[in-house]
């Protein structure tokens, strides 16, 4: 315990540096994932056949071990000279985020009470107005839950991306393993866990902020 605190103390600057890298990677990945996943999830509610295919595909991606996915991407991205580093890590994280975000968005929109949708149609809202004024606000808790899941998941997976040189807290754990330095591994693991918990709490706050008051129960 004492050696752990000592280690953190002595390497504080480095650890903060890794943490910032980690946050950077995950934030960019999540923002891009939301930009892809939410509109896609919304669109899929209008296309049942495509919805099943896409959701299947997303589930399959989920089952690929991250280390294998990085392995596959090295030769592929080497073509554009990006085999290792930030880009393959980013792509992997975006791919892993899709299932929770798309599925939750899709379910959220589909689960809006048909009677409410009927009323929205019947009083003369266009499809877009219905989406913006009724369906998305009422689906907000579920959509946000998907984003939270994806974020926590990404914070974990980003650790492994350190193997392909993306930086982040994974570097600490990596080095710890190769040097048999348990303190170092432990320090990395603790920082990642704290990061995940804090991120989830922040997003929970955002969720409450963005959820209309009328549907909190």
């Amino acid at each position: 315990m004492e050696s752990l605190l000592n280690f953190i103390n002595q390497n504080a600057e480095q650890i903060i540096q890794y943490t910032i890298e980690h946050i950077e990677l995950v934030s960019i990945a999540i923002i891009i994932s939301i930009l892809i996943g939410v509109p896609l999830g919304v669109y899929l509610t209008t296309n049942q056949a495509l919805a099943e295919t896409i959701l299947h595909l997303a589930s399959i991606i989920m089952t690929i071990p991250s280390i294998a996915l990085f392995g596959i991407m090295i030769p592929l991205l080497s073509i554009i000279d990006q085999g290792i580093g930030f880009l393959p890590a980013l792509i992997a994280l975006i791919l892993y985020s899709q299932l929770p975000i798309i599925r939750n968005t899709y379910t959220a929109i589909n689960n809006v009470d048909p009677k409410i949708r009927d009323a929205a149609k019947g009083i003369g809202m266009t499809t877009f107005q219905r989406l913006i004024r009724v369906e998305i606000p009422n689906g907000m808790p579920l959509i946000m839950a998907g984003i939270r899941t994806a974020t926590v998941l990404n914070i974990g997976i980003a650790t492994i991306a350190a193997f392909i040189g993306s930086g982040g807290i994974g570097v600490l754990i990596n080095q710890g393993i190769s040097r048999s330095n348990h303190t170092m591994v432990l320090a990395g693991a603790i920082v990642v866990s704290i990061l995940a918990i804090v991120a989830d709490l922040i997003l929970k706050f955002v969720q409450v902020k963005f959820t209309p008051k009328g549907i909190n129960n």
Partner: peptide, 29 residues
């Protein structure tokens, strides 16, 4: 869309929008 906005529509389960206040609901059209 134009026709619907000229027709008042009331359904059994009231179909109020849970995310909107009463004023927003009433004034939607």
């Amino acid at each position: 869309i134009k026709v619907r906005r000229q027709i008042g529509y009331v359904i059994q389960s009231n179909g109020l929008f849970p995310n909107m206040t009463i004023e927003k609901n009433v004034m939607i059209v």
